[in-house]
Design a protein around this nucleic acid. Structure first.
Length: 171
DNA sequence: TCAGTGATTAGG
DNA sequence: CTAATCACTGAG
């Protein structure tokens, strides 16, 4: 039931701690040019939660890079790190509540950098709206996998409290 | 364990 | 302008 249906605005405009654990098992669909859409099952995500979350980029305020996170849920937040990798994130919650889900894994490709490279994510996806875009969106798959959680990866700089929140979700 | 790699950011 | 930092990856 619900398989193949694009996720609508209401899915994304909830708290990131509700959205992030529901994404593993869903299908990320990409159509780079006008070819047939490619589907990948999302396998791993991480939640970044607003101003107070010291691991969230938006906790350092609104900048040109973090601007889109202050927008409505369903937009795409991408940024470049370590001189090589694009990180693919999905904005959640309502306007002016800067939250996002980092997509850390899809079937066949673990790791946010490898995944983004595989599906062709770059700066042109910044601000893309997953609820209307013709080249990228997320669909319900009808699957309800068992999800396990653990601490987020690579955020030790945020301090012990924030780096130990169990906000990483994987199948 | 550690180098590569360059955008982003804060600060002078 | 400078310099530090970085939600990573692959090689050894």
């Amino acid at each position: 039931m619900g398989s193949g249906i694009r996720l609508a605005r209401e899915f994304y405009t909830r708290d990131v701690l509700r959205v992030a654990p529901e994404l593993p098992g869903k299908h990320l669909v990409v159509r780079p040019d006008s070819g047939p859409p490619l589907k990948f099952m999302i396998t791993e995500t991480e939640a970044y939660r607003g101003n107070e979350d010291m691991a969230c980029h938006a906790s350092r305020g609104r900048t040109k890079r973090t601007e889109v996170m202050f927008g409505v849920g369903g937009l795409v937040y991408v940024y470049f790190v370590y001189g090589m990798y694009w990180m693919f994130n999905v904005v959640t919650s309502v306007e002016n509540d800067p939250q996002a889900v980092l997509i850390r894994g899809i079937e066949g490709f673990n790791g946010p950098g490898r995944l983004a490279r595989e599906i062709g994510i770059d700066r042109t996806y910044y601000g893309e709206d997953l609820t209307v875009s013709s080249r990228i969106w997320i669909e319900d798959s009808g699957l309800k996998p068992v999800i396990r959680s653990s601490h987020r990866i690579g955020v030790d700089y945020a301090g012990e409290y924030w780096s130990t929140r169990p906000w990483r979700y994987l199948i």
